[in-house]
Design a protein around this nucleic acid. Structure first.
Lengths: 290, 290
DNA sequence: CGTCGTTACGTCGCCCGTAAATATG
DNA sequence: CATATTTACGGGCGACGTAACGACG
C-alpha cells in the first residue's frame, strides 16, 4: 500500500493542524487510540515518518509538512469532484455564481439580464460567500464561476477573464479628519483601523464584518474605516464619505472558473459577462459624467 | 455522507471506463457484487444517478461524466500528495527530473553541471518516461520537474519557464524521395506515416516507439518517418537524413513544475536552467557557424 | 503526579466472495 | 436462453471505544 485514503488524510490533517492528538480526536469526534493507530498505519504504509512525537506535543517532519499542504488540496479535489458531479445531475441545470456582497462592480444585474436573454441559458444560482472565499467556492465545487477582485484573490488553479479595472475609494465616518478631502493617499490612512474591505476581512472577522450593513454601522460610529473598489459607493450609507485614494493600486474585477472546466454553460456565461463589461467600459469612457 | 471515498472513486472510474461491471470487477481484482453495492452506495450517498444500466451495457449520466473526469484528477492529487510526501521524507534529498529520451534539446548535461556547481544543490534523479508523459509524471508526484515541449504537452496545473525555441526537422530514410532536399514543407509529408516524434507516439505505441533506437531502426528501413525538434539531429543514426520543415510550427523546450510548488530546490533548478538556456541562445546567435 | 501518546482487548460494522434471483433482447 | 446486473447470505478483516500502560516534565 502506498496510496493514502481520504480518512487517513483527514485524520492526519487534523493532527497536523492541531499539533495535538487529543484535540484532533475531539475535533474529529473519535477517541485518541484510533487516531494513533491510523497515523501509525499511514506512516508504515508510506514508509516515511510524518510526525515527531515529543512529550510536550507534536512537530511535523519534512514529509509531514508536504503531506499537510498536498493532502489539503487533494481532499479539496475529492470534495470538488463529488459536489460538481452532484450538481451536474440536478435538474434543471443551474449555473452557480459565487459573489461577495457588494463585490459585483455594479455589473451583476446587467450580466444576469443579458445571460437570461441567451437561448438555452440555464438559471443562475447566486451564492453569497464571505470576503475572499469566492475562489475557494469555485475550487471546492460549490460554485461554477465567481466574481472576485484581483490581485486580492488567490487564483491558483483557476482561469479568469478580466472585466473591469476599478480604482479605490476610502469609506470614512462623517467627522473623520479626511472626510472633506477630494482625494487622499494611502499614507494618510496608516493610523486608522483598516480591514481592506471588502476583500480580506483581516483579523476583524469576529466582529461580523461579513455583512455590509454591519460594516457601514461600524464606519458611521467611527470604529473603523474601509477601502474598496469604487463600485462600493452605491452601497455606502448616507453620511459615509467616499474619498478616492489616488495612489492605491487599482483592483480588477474578474470572472473566474476552474482551469480545466469543459462546461459549455460556464464559457457561455463568461462570454456574456465580458460583453457586458466591455459595453460598460465604452459607456463610461464616452459619457464621462452626467 | 456526501464525500466520496478513494475506494469508491477507484471503483466508479473502473466501471465508467470499462462501461461494464464484470470487466471492471476483473480489472479491480474483485467480484461483481461488491462493485454493484459500492456504486449503489455511492449513488445513494451523493443523491445522484451516475450510471444508466441498460441490458446491453452501461452508459454514463451527465453527473457520471463529470465524476469520471473530476474523480480522475482527484485521485491523481491524492496519489501525488502521498508520493510527494514520501519523497520529501527520503534522505538524502533528491530532485527528480522527468525527461523523454532525446527530448532535452542538448541542454541537459550543461544544466546538470551548472546545477551541481551550486552550493547545497541536491542530487538530481533523472527518470525517463514515455513520450508525452513528462507532465503527467510531475502532476502525479513521481517527478518534481520536467523537460517537455510546448505546445505538444498539456500543461494544465503546471507552471513553466521556456528555455529554447526549436524549429522542426524531418527524419527520413536514405532513399526517401525528399532526402536530398535542403528544406521541405509539411504538405510534402502528408502521405508518409508520421508519428510526430518524439512528443506524441500517436497510434503506433504498439510498435515500441518509446525507444529512440527502435525508431531510428524503423526510419532506416523506410517503415515510417518522424518529425521533431532540431535537437534530435544529434541522435540521428548515420544514413538518416535530417531535413528542416520550414512551415512547421516551432516547438518550445520548457521546464515545468507544479503550479503550487513551494520547493526551494525546484526554483533553484529552474533558475539555473534558464541561465544555461539563455547562455546557450546567446552562443548560437553570436556564433552561427561551426 | 499530571499530561500526552501508545498498547491491549472486545465489539460492531463494513467489505468481500459464493450462490441464487431477476431483467432483457 | 444467454448475457448482465442485482439480491441474499455468511465469513473475516478493520475501525472503534474503554481501559490499562509508559514516557516525560
Amino acid at each position: 500500500m502506498t496510496q493514502a485514503d481520504t480518512r487517513e488524510l483527514r485524520y492526519f490533517i487534523a493532527v497536523a493542524e492541531e499539533r495535538h492528538f487529543a484535540r484532533a480526536a475531539a475535533r474529529l469526534g473519535i477517541a485518541q487510540p484510533p487516531l494513533t493507530r491510523t497515523i501509525q498505519k499511514l506512516e508504515r504504509g508510506m514508509g516515511v515518518r510524518l510526525l515527531e512525537r515529543d512529550s510536550r506535543g507534536v512537530r511535523l517532519t519534512e514529509a509531514g509538512t508536504v503531506l499537510l499542504r498536498e493532502g489539503r488540496v487533494a481532499l479539496e479535489r475529492v470534495g470538488a469532484a463529488t459536489r460538481r458531479a452532484q450538481r451536474a445531475g440536478r435538474t434543471p441545470a443551474t449555473l452557480v455564481l459565487a459573489v461577495k456582497p457588494g463585490g459585483d462592480g455594479g455589473l451583476l444585474t446587467e450580466i444576469l439580464a443579458a445571460h437570461a436573454a441567451e437561448p438555452d441559458a440555464p438559471d443562475v444560482d447566486i451564492v453569497c460567500v464571505g470576503a475572499g472565499e469566492q475562489a475557494a467556492a469555485v475550487r471546492d465545487g460549490r460554485a461554477d464561476v465567481a466574481l472576485l477582485h484581483r490581485p486580492d484573490a488567490d487564483l491558483t488553479g483557476l482561469d479568469r477573464e478580466d472585466l473591469l479595472v476599478e480604482s479605490q475609494v476610502a469609506l470614512l465616518p462623517p467627522h473623520h479628519r479626511l472626510s472633506g478631502h477630494a482625494r487622499i493617499r494611502v499614507a494618510d490612512l496608516e493610523d486608522d483601523p483598516l480591514p481592506r474591505w471588502p476583500d480580506t476581512a483581516g483579523e476583524l472577522s469576529g466582529a461580523g464584518i461579513r455583512e455590509a450593513g454591519r460594516l457601514m454601522q461600524l464606519i458611521l460610529v467611527g470604529r473603523l474605516i474601509a477601502v474598496g473598489p469604487e463600485s462600493v459607493r452605491r452601497y455606502a450609507w448616507d453620511g459615509v464619505a467616499c474619498v478616492p485614494v489616488v495612489d492605491a493600486a487599482p483592483t480588477t474585477l474578474a470572472l473566474a472558473w476552474p482551469e480545466d472546466s469543459r462546461s459549455r454553460a460556464v464559457s457561455a456565461f463568461a462570454r456574456v459577462a465580458t460583453a457586458v463589461a466591455s459595453r460598460h467600459r465604452d459607456a463610461t469612457v464616452h459619457e464621462p459624467g452626467p
